[in-house]
Design a protein around this nucleic acid. Structure first.
Length: 912
DNA sequence: GTCGATACGTAC
DNA sequence: GACGTACGTATCGACG
């Protein structure tokens, strides 16, 4: 019987691009994907089919985009390196004599589906050459799939075995599973196994949907929630087989190949094996000249990156002095040095440096192993000597350097006496400033998003979990591939990201004047650490534990049995099932909540809720704070060294972890006591400086509201002033309750709170809360106008800005889902204020750090969003206090004064 | 053992 | 559904 091979060109190109290293030819043109496609095509054509076609997607929207506007909306734009290979691919396919099909308005899949159906009905044997599982729906008596990755074929029995359902049920399976790549919604938590199980049980998607009520558990709920969109998902997953085409299967005959053109193309792209085959030469190893599958192609390419493929993609393992000297020379001449360190720990203060890597041009990088230590490890250059040779370069502020999360490397190198200067760019921060929420900002995520590249992951070379080995035990070849790639990818990311930032002056300003200068400041704060009185924490732990056990014993008595006070599930059973107390609050999953609000609501009906609250409070303080902080004291320094994260918070704030020193308790007496353990050395004091009402001041500035501006210019108690306005009283007649209400309104508005929320917060009726808000907006019309304008701007631009031009993109601002959109609007209201406050304190930190440089009487230790904490030699307190105050207050010129409150004491509690 | 989801609670 | 931004602990169930 005649055969037809239909080649899914788009899938080949993508798969080859991601499966192969970023190869390029001598001219620097990217060739990796091309190489994979060419090898695949040569292997495919060896089968000498009667008919064949290379099918790709035509540009422009398809009927699926019309059905579902979010179709493939999550796909990153095609990487430039891949786009560049499309034209050459078509040229080669053309020269090979293969018909190329592109049909506007449908996808390649639909063209293939239609041709396969037609051909099969004419008694032609069809082979669909693809790596895409979606094609399993086309398989039938005369249609098979060839998987390009494994070179295996899939017939009807194969589909049933692999997916657990016959080809006719594949679309149902795909609809249930969804497809995150194409952004097709399925049933949450439903994978191939669950989907197949349901289809087995109920026959089809319609059957599953009819019986959705019978399926229990969380996943049953997910299924019921998905019911509305499942028919659409099935339509999207269904490959069309009735596209009107200009060709019949029998038109798809191969033309003779154009040997001259092929020779030129193979030569240009450096495809040596293909060239040899073309010239009829035999191949040395006797096996197929071109690797038949992508896996083989990838293998071949990795083994011989220097051979025919030439040029970039070269990672050099540096183990001799001559090699090092050559690289030092390169680094000295380079306009920009991309560098990275490999170490033994995620904690840079505990980390040993085991190697360094460099790149100065894309695709070309070196790894210098310094302390790899495993049986049979080759000799390496001496760490001290190499670091000494690098020191002048790394410390030279005039030698611009580039890193990915370079604060880590700066900290790791510090203990080797290297004080990195001249860090000009950090790709993590470039990405963060460009778009803080589009992606995480680790290198693997960035490479995927901005380069379309799958990097080698740390786990790939070092393992994970209990099986993880220190990087010093990774073999040199793997280490080189991984580490050199890090430096290379960092450089390539910079080449992709910097032009975008540079072209946007406001973002460039945030990057150059705020984020980059902050990096060494944060590194110094982390290195310094804060002195902690571990003995005091131990005493507190003892005290808390004693009271915790007391509360626990009493709770068991009251409940009549023992149970885990730490388990919300068990608490729920006792409180609401056994004791029959009313459940005032529900968790997001619909369970009766046992949180503080819910327990307070029933505290007058039973003794147990109060005991649980007591226990919880004590348990929290002990496990999260007193015990944990004592553990986290670094034995080398006697201090606690937090990590600050500069590319995490959507608004531009910093965050802190290991331990988090930005959420040390202050509101309750038991909690505040923990701050007494944050101390200064003998003869030194703790100085705490915080901005007074900074976000409200920024709201006054941004809104230009006359009343609010006046309150701050008059240095009034803003909550009292607000209460006076809202309740129509002179300020001296405002009572404590009215001030409390006004404070709740002021804060609530900044967070986009509704009347519902305010009512709940204040324990008043919704109508009353609405009345407060109406009166507030009547007295402060500028605030109302500002909030409306912010919502509108967010909807129009898709982002909002801080005073300094930092942007926050709001993914959901145009969402059709009401709740998501409302959430995005609240974030849009809050972000300019929270973000401007973050910008201001970052500017202040840079200024204060510059003032402290070269002094030995004060160190900046902590930042807690609107507060800076220092240790100051006792005799310098006055000087430092005024210098800090001046720099914090002067960090921005707003239409309101910035007021800074300063306290000094023996510990952090006293300094407030 | 590890991982992710959930619930809860601390800060600004 | 209802207040923005974070991080840490504990429990619990799935997974291997």
């Amino acid at each position: 019987m005649p055969t037809l091979i239909l080649i899914d060109g788009s899938s080949y190109l993508y798969r080859a691009f991601h499966a192969l290293p970023p190869l390029s030819n001598a001219a620097g043109e990217p060739t990796g994907a091309l190489f994979g496609v060419v090898n695949m095509l040569r292997a495919t054509l060896k089968a000498q089919p009667d008919y064949a076609a290379f099918v790709t997607d035509a540009p422009g929207p398809t009927f699926r985009d019309e059905l579902y506007p979010q179709y493939k909306a999550n796909r990153p734009p095609m990487p430039d390196d891949l786009r560049a290979q499309i034209e050459p691919m078509h040229a080669i396919v053309e020269a090979l004599g293969l018909p190329i099909l592109r049909v506007p308005g449908v996808e390649a899949d639909d063209v293939i589906g239609t041709l396969a159906r037609q051909a099969a009905s004419q008694g032609i044997e069809v082979i669909v050459s693809t790596g895409d599982k979606d094609f399993a729906q086309l398989v039938g008596p005369h249609v098979r799939l060839v998987n390009t990755m494994t070179n295996t074929t899939l017939d009807e029995a194969g589909v049933a075995e692999k997916f657990g359902v016959p080809p006719a049920r594949i679309v149902d399976l795909l609809a249930l599973m969804g497809d995150s790549v194409d952004n097709i919604p399925g049933v949450e938590k439903c994978g191939p196994k669950t989907a197949a199980k349901w289809l087995e049980q109920y026959g089809s998607l319609d059957g599953v949907m009819e019986h959705a009520g019978e399926i229990g558990g969380k996943i049953g709920e997910n299924l019921r929630r998905a019911l509305d969109h499942l028919p659409l998902s099935r339509r999207l997953a269904t490959i069309k087989t009735d596209v009107a085409l200009e060709y019949a299967p029998t038109d798809l005959v191969l033309r003779p190949r154009d040997t001259g053109k092929l020779r030129a193309l193979y030569t240009r792209y450096g495809f040596a094996t293909a060239l040899k085959e073309l010239e009829g030469a035999t191949v040395a190893n006797g096996s197929d000249a071109g690797a038949a599958t992508l896996r083989e192609a990838a293998h071949a390419a990795e083994e011989a990156p220097h051979a025919a493929l030439g040029g970039p993609g070269n990672y050099e393992l540096v183990t001799t002095q001559a090699q090092l000297d050559a690289w030092l020379d390169k680094l000295r001449r380079a306009a920009l040095i991309s560098f990275d360190t490999e170490t033994t720990s995620l904690d840079p203060l505990r980390a040993e440096v085991v190697g360094v890597s460099f790149a100065v041009e894309a695709g070309h990088a070196a790894y210098v192993p310094l302390a790899h230590d495993y049986p049979g490890a080759p000799a390496q250059l001496d760490r001290a000597a190499v670091l000494a040779a690098l020191k002048p370069l790394l410390e030279d502020p005039a030698k611009p350097k580039l890193g990915q999360h370079a604060k880590y490397d700066i900290n790791a190198l510090e203990k080797y006496g290297i004080a990195v200067r001249g860090l000009a760019y950090d790709t993590m921060l470039e990405s963060y400033v460009w778009n803080a929420t589009a992606t995480r900002h680790d290198m693997d995520s960035l490479a995927k998003r901005y380069l379309g590249v799958d990097t080698i992951h740390y786990e790939d070379v070092a393992g994970r979990g209990a099986k993880q080995i220190p990087f010093s035990q990774v073999d040199l070849d793997s280490a080189c591939r991984y580490a050199a790639e890090d430096a290379d990818i960092t450089l390539r990311l910079h080449l992709a990201l910097w032009p975008k930032l540079e072209a946007t002056p406001t973002l460039r300003h945030v990057f150059e004047r705020i984020e980059m200068p902050l990096v060494p400041v944060l590194a110094r704060m982390e290195q310094r650490g804060v002195l902690v009185d571990a003995a005091e924490l131990k005493r507190q732990t003892q005290d808390l534990a004693r009271r915790q056990h007391q509360a626990q014993r009493r709770a068991y008595e009251v409940a009549g049995r023992e149970f885990s006070l730490d388990s919300p599930k068990q608490l729920q059973a006792i409180l609401f099932d056994e004791l029959g107390l009313p459940a005032a609050v529900k968790t997001p999953t619909g369970q009766p909540s046992t949180n503080e609000e819910a327990l307070e609501a029933i505290a007058d009906q039973h003794e147990l809720p109060r005991l649980i609250l007591e226990y919880r409070g004590l348990a929290k303080l002990r496990s999260t704070y007193t015990e944990k902080l004592a553990e986290m004291v670094n034995p080398r320094t006697g201090r606690v060294h937090t990590s600050y994260h500069q590319a995490v918070a959507a608004t531009g704030r910093l965050s802190s972890s290991d331990p988090n020193l930005q959420n040390i308790p202050i509101r309750t007496e038991d909690g505040r006591r923990i701050r007494r353990a944050f101390i200064a050395p003998d003869g030194w004091k703790i100085l705490a400086a915080d901005y007074s009402q900074i976000e409200l001041r920024i709201m006054a500035h941004l809104s230009g509201d006359a009343g609010l501006l006046a309150a701050f210019h008059g240095n009034q108690d803003v909550h009292r002033a607000t209460a006076a306005e809202v309740f129509g009283l002179p300020q001296d007649q405002v009572d404590a309750n009215q001030r409390r209400a006004a404070k709740a309104i002021n804060f609530g508005l900044m967070y986009g709170m509704s009347a519902f929320g305010l009512a709940r917060q204040l324990g008043i009726g919704r109508a009353e809360a609405q009345d407060y808000i109406a009166r507030y907006f009547a007295r402060y019309p500028g605030v109302k106008a500002f909030m409306d304008a912010t919502r509108e701007r967010a909807a129009r631009d898709g982002y909002v800005e801080t005073v300094f031009g930092r942007r926050l993109y709001l993914e959901d601002i145009r969402a059709r889902n009401q709740a998501r959109r409302a959430g995005a609007e609240r974030a849009a209201i809050n972000a300019p204020m929270q973000g401007t406050a973050a910008d201001i304190i970052k500017r202040a930190m840079i200024a204060v750090d510059a003032f402290l440089a070269g002094r030995d009487d004060a160190h900046m230790l902590l930042q807690v969003h609107d507060e800076l904490v220092f240790e100051v030699r006792a005799d310098a307190v006055q000087t430092i206090a005024e210098a800090v105050r001046a720099r914090m207050a002067g960090a921005a010129e707003l239409d309101v004064p910035l007021v800074v409150d300063i306290g000094v004491g023996a510990n952090w509690d006293e300094a407030h």
